[in-house]
Amino acid sequence: MIFPPGPLDPIIIFLATLSVMSAIIALESRQIVYGAVSLIVMFLGISAIFLYLGGLYLGVVQLGVYVGAIGVLILFAVILVGESRTPEPNVNRIIGATAAMIVLGSLLVGFTALQMLPAPHHVGAQELSRIASRLMRDYGLVIVALGSLLASTAFGSVMITRR
């Protein structure tokens, strides 16, 4: 989808609200399992935004990898580890909020650069085969590096957690 000119899209507003709310709940929920499930809801919301904006392939990969693999892995680790016995000190919240505000300010400065965006030039729908050929032609080395990284990570995680 190309962004339609005109007023705000209610679907985007809904998905954005859902993502932000569930991200906040993920960090601030009292029980950490609820936080993990809320994080998975956020992944779902983000993937819905991808699908809605036309990134079909990326949306599906987000669904399969983030929700199906990373989300399940995080939920399983959370269930295994359980609740932390030490409570979070309240002072940290204030420090965290301050840091967040500083980052927000610096991001807002970058936001003004939106005015310098080039005008959109529309082309036709993206084919999956085009992504595949670009992935193999231009990013072949990246794919190989990613593959070896993933393999070594899997091997390393197994070695770490093995008794």
Partner: peptide, 13 residues
């Protein structure tokens, strides 16, 4: 979302 992430990264233990 990024700012929420920064907040969590700083404030949580």
């Amino acid at each position: 979302l990024f700012v929420i992430g920064v907040y969590g990264l700083v404030s949580k233990r």
